[in-house]
């Protein structure tokens, strides 16, 4: 079993009386794509945002390679490079004022990577399947699928160790979903990238994840190899999720 890159221990988060995360524990291995499945609700996204540092948990801890991950304000530049988040909404995650080149180069600028950045941006965009002529375009000129690719490129340009993908394909058409997911799988093979794929869609998890973890009421109710979980779910909630998928 690959060594755990990300370890989540006893994470708790409550909004008033609603316990969204209830002593949750999870591990993502080095170079692994782990799917986190569950209903639409605050739980999965809250977990994703806590790992990314945008929110803080009430208690518990998150460790990256045995080093504790504080919320964003406490992270140094190197730590910011290691963990990246790709958001759900391709229409909101790119600034409408920045052209593609500037949007993807932004992390490099913020991290004070010495210029020129153009070559690196172009290469990253090529890897996500975007042609060089899109460099000068504004997000308004791109489709949802194209914007999401740019968002993924932006997350990849710093070569992070872990990417948290928060429902990244749920706003895209069925055809586009597979393309983006294949992209991530390709980067995993290339960079040894680990991915925490948060989704409510069983089909999405099934298509690209090595392992699947199912979340319900703030806890992980099932976890295991994808094929096993789909063929032989041990938890009734998992079975309900799988059955609910429309089929041809």
């Amino acid at each position: 079993m690959a060594e755990a890159l990300l370890r989540i221990e006893g994470l708790c988060r409550a909004f008033g009386a609603n316990r969204v995360l209830d002593r949750l524990g999870l591990e993502v291995g080095e170079g692994e794509i782990l799917g986190l499945l569950g209903e639409s609700g605050a739980g999965k996204t809250t977990l994703a945002r806590i790992v990314a540092g945008l929110e803080r948990a009430d208690s518990g801890r998150v460790l990256l390679a045995d080093r504790e991950l504080p919320p964003l304000s406490g992270r140094d530049r190197a730590l910011c490079r290691s963990v990246q988040l790709v958001f759900q909404d391709p229409y909101a995650s790119l600034s409408p004022r920045l052209r593609v080149l500037d949007a993807v180069a932004e992390p490099l600028r913020i991290q004070r990577v010495p210029p020129p950045h153009v070559a690196r941006v172009r290469e990253t965009l090529a890897r996500v399947g975007m042609a060089a002529d899109t460099l000068a375009k504004l997000p308004g000129e791109l489709s949802g699928g194209e914007r999401q690719r740019v968002a993924v490129a932006r997350a990849l340009v710093l070569e992070p160790r872990l990417i948290v993908a928060d429902e990244i394909v749920s706003m895209l058409d069925s055809c586009r979903k597979l393309e983006i997911l294949d992209l991530l799988a390709g980067e995993r093979a290339r960079l040894g990238l680990s991915v925490l794929l948060v989704t409510h869609d069983v089909a999405v998890a099934a298509s690209v994840c090595d392992r699947i973890a199912v979340m319900s009421r703030g806890k992980i109710v099932e976890i295991g190899q994808t094929a096993r979980v789909l063929a032989d779910p041990r938890d009734p909630y998992t079975a309900a999720l799988i059955d609910a998928v429309p089929r041809l």
Binding site: L72, F87, S93, S95, R97, E106
Partner: peptide, 25 residues
């Protein structure tokens, strides 16, 4: 609270950068 501003924070942007590049315009 805009997503693209959160994204900039994720890359380690300082408050000054957020103000000049994302908020002021």
């Amino acid at each position: 609270t805009r997503t693209h501003v959160e994204a900039a924070r994720l890359f380690g942007a300082s408050r000054a950068y957020l103000i000049t590049r994302h908020i002021l315009p």
